[in-house]
């Protein structure tokens, strides 16, 4: 693919140098070459958009998705010089300007996404040993919060009360596990459910260590395994917060790339019809 791109770039460079030397003119958008390049760019854009429905039919034998992605990237990059030559490096009217600007937004966001995808997955692997499926972390954490609630309840009631029967721990004033119960309901559960958006002091690693150290000293040995499990889940939540933040960067560019692609494709169709109608 790189070779193909270089092969395409060679004539373009010769062309540009010749135009610079005055041997021939840079092609106008309405010249035969300009129109041909416009069509070529249009075909490439339509192909680029096909990767979207391709993802809907993952199970269909349409070639490896990896190959589709490679073609998407390289042909997308190839469409940039083709489009710029077609435009004559000018914005033109409002419609063509909007189309070109959206196209550049698509290209820039795509390149940005490409860079992030080369780098962030490895960083997530390094920084988040307990990585999970990004879309399911909130659901899983809700399960873990319920597990903690159940553990504390079992500890307080000697293991006879089931979590599904009690929404929240009963207040046990003066009880041995009051401090644990309070910690679970006021600090741990909000943190596990909402993570860094909860406002919990457990967001801080140092504060977390202090809280668990205090509880470890205050509670009897029977509570130590529960405390260890809680601490590991708190750490998991922190890791997943990091993962979510990095996943946001990893996929967030699509929020620009995709809508801009959709709008650009629509504008491009109108631009082609209008240009052929008037020219």
């Amino acid at each position: 693919m790189l070779c193909l791109s270089l092969l395409a770039a060679g004539p373009a460079v010769v062309w540009a140098l010749g135009a610079k030397a005055g041997w021939w003119n840079w092609p106008a958008a309405s010249s035969p070459v300009g129109v041909f390049l416009g069509f070529a760019a249009g075909v490439l854009v339509f192909f680029e958009m096909l990767i979207w429905p391709r993802k809907w039919f993952r199970g269909t034998r349409l070639g490896p998705t990896r190959s589709w992605l490679r073609l998407h990237v390289w042909l997308g990059l190839l469409s940039l010089p083709i489009t710029l030559i077609h435009s004559g490096f000018a914005l033109g009217g409002t419609l063509s300007a909007a189309t070109l600007v959206l196209f550049l937004v698509v290209i820039v966001s795509g390149i940005w996404g490409l860079i992030l995808q080369q780098w962030l997955p490895q960083k997530i692997l390094d920084d988040v040993p307990n990585e999970t499926v990004a879309g399911l972390s909130e659901l899983a954490m809700r399960n873990y919060a319920a597990e903690c609630r159940q553990l504390v309840l079992n500890l307080s009631a000697g293991g006879e009360v089931h979590a599904e029967k009690v929404e929240r721990l009963p207040t046990a004033d003066g009880g041995v596990y009051d401090s644990l119960s309070s910690f679970q309901s006021k600090l741990l559960e909000p943190y596990l459910e909402r993570g860094r958006h909860s406002g919990s002091m457990l967001r801080s690693r140092g504060e977390t260590a202090r809280q668990y150290g205090r509880l470890r000293t205050a509670l009897p040995s029977a509570a130590q395994p529960v405390l260890a499990r809680m601490e590991s889940l708190t750490d998991l939540r922190r890791q997943w917060d990091v993962q979510m933040r990095m996943t946001g960067w990893l996929h967030g560019w699509l929020l620009v790339h995709l809508p801009a692609s959709v709008a650009m494709t629509a504008f491009m169709c109108f631009h082609a019809v209008a240009a052929l109608k008037y020219w």
Binding site: G135, G252, L254, L255, L258, P259, A260, V262, A266
Partner: peptide
């Protein structure tokens, strides 16, 4: 993310 992606694409279109 999917909801935002589709929502914004629909709005753009």
């Amino acid at each position: 993310l999917e909801r935002w992606k589709w929502g914004l694409s629909a709005v753009a279109f």
